[in-house]
Design a protein around this nucleic acid. Structure first.
Lengths: 138, 138
DNA sequence: AGTAATTCGTTAGGCTATCTAAATATAATC
DNA sequence: GATTATATTTAGATAGCCTAACGAATTACT
């Protein structure tokens, strides 16, 4: 059963190395894409909030947001309730880029997983379900 | 179904961020651990071979091996058949460290996955199976 | 044998991600 | 109003990853 841990670890590394290549073609790294996805689906967030959601320290999120802003995918706004804070919001371009990235990954997934049976794909989906549940519990 | 791709991507990012913390406590990063694991289980390998297996470019593997060597987990040897080449071999310390890391991850997995039912664990395992199969096909 | 092409590994340089510690600005509390 | 707490940024470090360029050794072709 320790095998599951080892294999999961290794598979995650290899998966990300693989996806990184694709996302580069899209012009956005995985961590930025992940943060952008939160902004698009859950709406504007403060830096600290985003950092917590993405499980990184605030300075790391500052940098990630810098990148998104530089690329025009998100923007910083003053928080109306707290002058120390910053609200980060996805731009229309950001939302569009996310959709495009999703379409791209979907296409790649179709190509890559084309050989898998529906049953295997379902198994993968269920594995992801479990993983999400486990990771969600801080 | 594109959901599977998105969620898998995101889950992989979060998983690695989580595991990184633990492996740091062990004193070895995920990419190094992954390479070390190959050396321990598959025996000595050349730099280029290791790079191919780990799906990184040779200069990256040079650096990863530098780290392993610096920490005494592996060593470089002259290749007897080809004077250009280098063989990398795990040291006894390397093998021990790998075992210790595995034990540690297993313990964490037990703690983290303690709430999962055997069925969920099995689902996770099967998801990993599928993932490995897909990633294995270059 | 001798030259040309290829292969192996490293070095150099650049970008991103990540951390901790310290600085800055604002808010909240007593 | 002075102190303490909170939100973000800046500074500085390490690591992982890449491409380009290079020296050394091997292989291939005359």
């Amino acid at each position: 059963m320790g095998r599951v841990a080892d294999r999961l670890h290794s598979a995650a590394i290899h998966l990300l190395r693989r996806l990184r290549v694709e996302d580069e073609a899209l012009g956005i790294s995985a961590p930025r894409l992940s943060a952008l996805s939160v902004l698009v689906f859950a709406g504007p967030k403060r830096i600290g909030e985003l950092a917590r959601i993405e499980q990184v320290e605030p300075p790391t999120m500052t940098k990630l947001v810098d990148g998104l802003v530089r690329d025009g995918l998100a923007l910083r706004e003053d928080d109306p309730d707290d002058a120390r804070a910053v609200r980060v919001r996805a731009t229309a371009t950001g939302a569009r880029t996310l959709r495009r990235g999703r379409a791209k990954r979907l296409a790649t997934l179709r190509a890559t997983l084309g050989t898998l049976s529906p049953g295997e794909l379902a198994a993968l989906g269920e594995g992801v379900d479990v993983l999400e549940r486990v990771l969600g519990e801080r």
